[in-house]
């Protein structure tokens, strides 16, 4: 019983460590992105907040998803993260058109290419998550069948 508990604690610590590493990598990407966009941060207005919310949400989803690895919830959170990325960007960027008003200057940038690329990557992510979930359930049922057989 004690040995089982030790394994479980070790396993959870490893998961937290892995989740922390992945979240940290996302945080580093966010920091680099913030550093690169620092000169134009003032012009970004509300879009600065949108980017912050995106990074924070992806970071949280990644952490939770990694923490729940080895369970079906891992795939649920991964699926949710990919879906969030697609819906969030389509909604907040009006389908890819980025508009700003600075006193008497109006700016409009069409970022449809980036949105499409992001959607495509997320779709691949969804496909991978679904296949992984199927694979996970398949392996789990196989193990149970083998256990029942012996």
């Amino acid at each position: 019983m004690e040995a089982k508990n030790k394994i479980s604690v070790k396993n959870i610590s490893l998961r937290i460590f892995k989740a922390g590493i992945k979240a940290f990598i996302i945080y580093i990407v966010y920091l680099v992105f913030s550093w690169l966009t620092e000169p134009i941060r003032g012009f970004m207005g509300q879009y600065g907040q949108i980017i912050d919310v995106f990074f924070i949400t992806v970071l949280i989803f990644t952490f939770i998803s990694e923490l729940s690895s080895g369970t079906i919830y891992h795939f649920v959170f991964s699926f949710s993260r990919e879906l969030f990325v697609i819906l969030y960007f389509i909604t907040v960027l009006n389908g890819g058109t980025f508009k700003m008003n600075l006193e008497n200057i109006k700016l409009a940038v069409n970022l449809q290419f980036f949105i499409l690329m992001l959607i495509f990557i997320s779709m691949l992510g969804i496909a991978k998550t679904l296949l992984s979930a199927m694979n996970f359930l398949n392996e789990k049922s196989e193990k149970e069948t083998v256990r029942e057989y012996y």
């Binding site: 008497n104 109006k106 700016l107 409009a108 940038v109 069409n110 290419f113």
Partner: peptide, 11 residues
């Protein structure tokens, strides 16, 4: 080639 950009300024 992939990012159309528009700006309007009044003076």
């Amino acid at each position: 080639r992939i990012i159309p950009f528009a700006m309007s300024v009044n003076s």
